[in-house]
Amino acid sequence: MASESESTDLRHSLGNFEEALRESRSLVIKMGSLAQQNLTNAMNGLLQRDEDLCNDAIAEDEEVNAIERSIDQGGMEILMRFNPVATDLRSVLAAMKIANNIERISDQAENIARRARKILKKKEVEDIRLIEPIYDAATAMLQDAAKAYAESDTELALTLFERDKHLNKLHRKAIKHYTQAMEADTENIKTYLHLIFIVRCLERIGDHSVNICEEAVYITHGTSIKHVGPSALES
């Protein structure tokens, strides 16, 4: 067998292909950053009682949807025109799947913003702050998932599996608390119900972030770790 090539960054012989791959990647990164911003606006709108921020999150979701369509269309075109293989093929497929997850994250942000607007119309409940650590965990997971994809950082990607378990724990604890609060404080029952749904949205964002990391690992290693977790890489 011959030794491995020393070259590390050879350009594709078809310049258009290289450009299309780059474009797809940068659109995914841009989409992730927009979804992150939408989540931040939605949660700040809730916690700072700022309706304008909630409206921004709802309006900007359309931009995320548009980028997802572009990524899908671009991916289809790359598959049709260039018949990519190996890392290129995995990158194109993963970009389309990651875009789908980011779109769902942005939808969750929109849901949070819509419920937040309803909460803002009511009296503030004190234990709304219980949601903050859940938000911190979910948003950090989203940021790191985007970073793991952008920088092909497998080590970072794999940390999300344990962090998702922690987020699930926080989620269960918060649901229990707000359910009890609904019984104790019937006057604010609707607010607590909205908070329960918002906690659920944040938990889902954690799941989507894990999905993004699975795709990032697949691009780099060619091994699917879906439903198996990091141990799939060992085998």
Partner: peptide, 18 residues
């Protein structure tokens, strides 16, 4: 074609042969 183990193979099949 999906996950070659040698970089030279990957470079060739993906059109990056230098």
């Amino acid at each position: 074609f999906t996950n070659p183990s040698i970089k030279q193979t990957e470079d060739y099949i993906s059109g990056r042969f230098g």
